[in-house]
Amino acid sequence: MRAFSYERAGSPQEAAAAAAAHEGAQFIAGGTNLLDLMKLEIETPSHLIDVNGLGLDTIEATAEGGLRIGALVRNTDLAADQRVRRDYGVLSRALVAGASGQLRNKATTGGNLLQRTRCPYFYDTNMSCNKREPGSGCAAQGGYSRQLAVIGGSEACIATHPSDMAIAMRVLDAVVETVNAEGDTRAIPLADFHLLPGDTPHIETVLAPDEFITAVVLPRPLGGQHFYHKVRDRASYAFALVSVAAVIQPDGSGRIALGGVAPKPWRNEAAEAAMPNGARAVISRLFEGATPTEDNEFKVTLAERTLAAVLAEARG
């Protein structure tokens, strides 16, 4: 871990201003990912802005009939919220499928969206990684890639996004709210929030360096049945091989987003039109242009089968 300076921000805008004022600054909330990465010198912030004192830890109803989730609401609290459990079951289920109880107690809503990949080559600083060190190459290409992306990756990077929460939020069409150093706010649909790697895998979201997440807004409840089926090599405390977030309506229509397969939550609204035709039809649309490796080509089949299991469960 490199030495860094530290401050506590007094307001969201001050936090953003502090980030603008210090090159190489990072926000720290739960720290469940950032601290690990700092210990390994994968992240080397020169300045930390502690945002834990900002409040932003409530879940409030919006005028549109949805919920505004403060950026600092802890994963445990979000998963346990009565309204979330009742109206957004997919989100509650995704949250409790992630990490461990201890981690969920610390991890925040904003931080969860900004988790970095768990690609083992990203984690080993002896290996080349374009995400960690732009231009150094990608050791994962041709390496051990069982956990890595089958779609959405590039020559430069085949890392996956590890979040479960984000997959559910994508299926719910959540919107990320931010503020910057000037006090300007904006609302970013989650669909547009994460970037595909292309030639710049180190740039993972559309956030500007001085932009701070204040909340995530959920639109009105969708009704229907909510599923989050996460498949992994052990029963708990592991990242998804494949996960399926789904909201399915009584008429068989619905929404699907996949985790564990791409650098961002993977959803294609056009593919959802194929839902009445079954899992295979949906998956073949969702994976158009997929470029799996020998290690992870099973994920395409697994995604199809997991979706089939969800659809079967929805039919009852």
Binding site: R118, P120, Y123, G143, D233, R234, S236, Y237, A238
Partner: peptide
Amino acid sequence: FVNHDLAGYEVPVHAD
């Protein structure tokens, strides 16, 4: 060995 930590090298958890 690529998965050289306890996140990458999975051992059973209670739920298993």
